[in-house]
Structure formats: C-alpha cells, structure tokens
Write a protein that binds this DNA or RNA. Structure first.
Length: 123
DNA sequence: CCTGTGACTGGAT
DNA sequence: GATCCAGCCACAG
C-alpha cells in the first residue's frame, strides 16, 4: 500500500501528478542507513509490481529533490549499482554506500541479501 | 495522439 | 549457467 501521507514536496515541475514519484521518494528515505533494497521491491510495495522501471525512472529525477533522496540505497535485484552512472560522479554511489558500512566489489554489493531491506516486509 | 525510451524483472531459450 | 525477450507505464517530443 502506498504511503499516502502528507508529504508536501516542493513539487514545482508544472506537470503535477507527482504522486508516484513522491511515494517512491518516501519509501527510499525510509531505508535505514547501511541497508539496501531493489527497484522491484519498492515497485511491489507501491502496488505497481512489475513496474520497477518506473521506480528507476523516478529516481532519475531525484537530483533536484528536497529533502535529498538516498538513491544509493536502491540497486537492482542482483545488488549491482546499476544507477551509479546517474550520480554526479560514477564513483559517488559506491563511496556513499561504503561510508554506510557496506562493501562494494565490482559494482556489486557484497552480501547483498544480508543487507537487503524489503519495504513490504519491514513497513 | 503516437512513438521511443528507460537507474528493471521473471520466465523462456 | 548465460542471454534473450517481452511486459511494465510515465514522460518528453
């Protein structure tokens, strides 16, 4: 179930209809430090299972978002940093994760399963 | 309105 | 196993 709480994002973006985005950002912000989740898990939690791409697409717009979204904690189901290219520098995503106590090897989170955080199970 | 494009995923090949 | 393939759906042009 979507979070649907009153979370007034600065919005702007003219187009309106930012419900999906807002929900994605809300869930991502709830990911505990040092834990990670997958696009699919978030999509499933929001009730749009199978639309993991939308989650990734939403995160692609999180750069100008306030408050900031810890997008580094969202990776694909294999635990790979598939979105690192979309950060300010290609190494920032890995560095951020390492700062949170995770180990990255070959763009892959070591013991991904161990640090996995499933919103539909934890929330 | 129609088309192309994804920070993805699960099942088929 | 590794790869391919087809859904997925919001958005920009």
């Amino acid at each position: 179930m979507p979070i649907k709480k009153n979370n007034p994002l600065p919005d702007t973006t003219a187009s309106g209809s930012y419900d999906f985005f807002r929900d994605v950002y809300d869930v991502v912000r709830l990911i505990p430090k040092g834990r990670v989740t997958s696009y699919g898990a978030i999509a499933a939690y929001l009730g749009t299972k199978g639309s993991a791409r939308m989650v990734g697409w939403a995160l692609n717009h999180c750069h100008n978002m306030q408050p900031e979204v810890p997008a580094q904690r969202v990776v694909n189901r294999m635990g790979m940093l598939s979105g690192k290219a979309h950060f300010e520098t290609p190494t920032q995503m890995q560095e951020l994760l390492e700062q949170e106590g995770l180990t990255i090897k070959n763009d892959c989170i070591v013991d991904f399963q161990k640090h996995f955080w499933d919103p539909s199970q934890e929330l």
